[in-house]
Design a protein around this nucleic acid. Structure first.
Lengths: 335, 335
DNA sequence: TTGAAAGCGCTAACAT
DNA sequence: ATGTTAGCGCTTTCAA
């Protein structure tokens, strides 16, 4: 049986009230002797307070729940590192959940986290549980990360997708590659995807180029599916001079597909993408990307959340923080 | 104020005992009417039981804590996916923590998880908190993953590092590359690292080759440090024909270093590594590796833990599950 | 400076 | 089939 506050109180011959005071650092309201006495007993017994009991009473768990869309994506893990570091520095624990791009799983996690009475939530949402999230947000602060949801009026941190796409399209056109295909996952409902598609159209328009339907390709992130999509677009009467992947996973899938089809990058076609990651430069060829400051985004999300937790009443109105993406030029366009 | 079991009881005009029975599915001990009545009230009020209160009483949280050494490592995340899937399927939540290779952080997380009364622990340990882990293991089941600790007598799942290294060395020697450098992170105390070094010596010995001290290089996983280490070994009187990275991160660091130094793989030197990951084949050149079945290892760890949680008394004696690594031949040796 | 007592939201004997 | 009661381990008035 684990030792409880009663055991400590008994051994130290004081009431559990006093022990509680000690545990909560209210040393001024007890004699030096009792304090040292309790300290010693705690040490002897290896006593640790039961966080469940404490939280039940205090109605605070000092715990934040985070749900990421896909833990296998370096984009997510890098954000999480930012969240985590900030939480740690400020005395909060993190419960990390992986929705695996599955709205059902996401819903379950949202409920479990709420049931466990987390103090706040950081969510990289799938976009299909807005009702629930809005509801939870009535009782606890929520910060949305990466994917914003207009109908949920809460702190959001994301990056400027349209600007990012524009940067890249400008770059490609400067290199003379104006026939640009954009490869995206199904994008309805999911904000950065929608915005990147929008950004694609707008950026082309800004160069006086019309968006050709066959160059805007929507495919799931399945190896075979991407290969088929690549083959199709290359076999079209007007094949592209570059393929732009909507995120890192799509970009890698495209590179894989091209390799499998024995098509040389950048000789036969250029490949670029949204999102950077540690070993992007090791890819053959090192791939030119638009990079988001993921770690900083994670830190910012945690900052916003904890600020809200510390301020008595929900004072501030929701902030939407937009980070600036950056062009990282490597070799996949023949630069 | 969130709604409690009392609110439900009041509205349904029954005692909270009956509500509790309802919540726990003991429908046989209540009339159809009360059951439906309660169901409706629960629905109306959007009631969800407070997991904290429930756990405090039951002394079960149905939650497992997992600590990984480094969440940025695809090796860790893939294992976690396995753990997670299995936990989900069996009604357990997962609290995931990232020790970031830092024993101090690891210790904090171990304590937080224990304080939160998790039912069990899955740990990819740094190797520097054995005392604490041993202690926690007195009260709750622990499964060690990847890194085993002889002094902690508990379920462990790992893979056969020595066999893996042997596989790779055999392969290299068959290709005529018998001067093999082994690049490892500092390895004292950390079992797979120690075993891989041991495997390296033994595998060389099995081919009648002595281990040359300058070819066993120990370096931290820092970009500059690895570059220096690579330069040093290449400048030695007897430079290697291949470099073998002790894990995926080290292998990538070596590839990066070689690129920076403008040394061609595999023409000038071969590079191979332990651990596989999704985009290893996209690297230039696609790198030949020894692969561990990470997802299955995660599943197995969760299986062992949950089995122990379900069996009344700690019956079985600790199992040590050894998975078989596999050689994945790509192009980094000029195959 | 210390303690008694109530209560956080739930479950589980034990009645009835 | 339903309710009364005690209590999980802690914090927090309120009194002494």
């Amino acid at each position: 049986m684990p030792v409880t506050i009663n055991d400590v109180a008994a051994r130290a011959r004081v009431s559990k009230t006093t022990v509680s005071h000690y545990l909560n650092g209210r040393y001024d309201s007890m004699s030096k002797e009792t304090r040292e006495n309790i300290a010693q007993v705690v040490e002897e017994l290896g006593y640790r307070p039961n966080a469940l009991a404490r939280s039940l009473k205090q109605k605070k768990t000092h715990t934040i729940g985070a749900i990421v869309a896909n833990i296998l994506n370096p984009f997510s893990t890098s954000i999480i590192r930012g969240v985590e570091d900030y939480c740690n520095q400020h005395g909060f624990s993190l419960i990390l959940c992986n929705a695996d791009e599955d709205p059902v799983k996401e819903r379950e996690y949202l409920e479990v986290l709420a049931d466990k009475q987390v103090d706040g939530l950081i969510i990289n949402t799938t976009g299909y549980n807005n009702d629930l999230i809005k509801n939870l947000n009535l009782h606890l602060p929520v910060v949305l990360i990466d994917r914003k949801v207009p109908e949920i009026n809460t702190d959001t941190v994301t990056s400027d997708s349209r600007k990012g796409v524009q940067l890249m399209i400008d770059h490609l056109i400067k290199l003379g590659r104006s026939e640009i295909a954009f490869f995206t996952m199904p994008y309805h409902e999911v904000s950065p995807r929608t915005e990147r598609v929008l950004g694609y159209r707008q950026a082309l328009a800004s160069h006086g180029i019309a968006c050709k339907p066959h160059l805007l390709v929507e495919t799931i992130l399945d190896e075979a599916a991407v290969i088929r999509a690549v083959e199709t677009v290359l076999a079209s009467p007007e094949p592209p001079a570059a393929i732009f992947g909507a995120n890192n996973l799509m970009t890698m899938a495209v590179v894989k597909a091209l390799k499998k089809l024995n098509i040389s990058i950048p000789r036969d076609i250029a490949v670029v993408g949204f999102d950077d990651w540690d070993w992007a430069e090791l890819i053959d060829p090192p791939v030119t990307v638009v990079s988001q400051p993921t770690y900083a985004m994670g830190q910012e999300a945690a900052t916003l959340l904890i600020k809200r937790l510390k301020s008595k009443r929900n004072s501030r109105k929701p902030a939407v923080i937009l980070f600036d993406p950056e062009l990282v030029i490597r070799k996949s366009c023949g630069e």
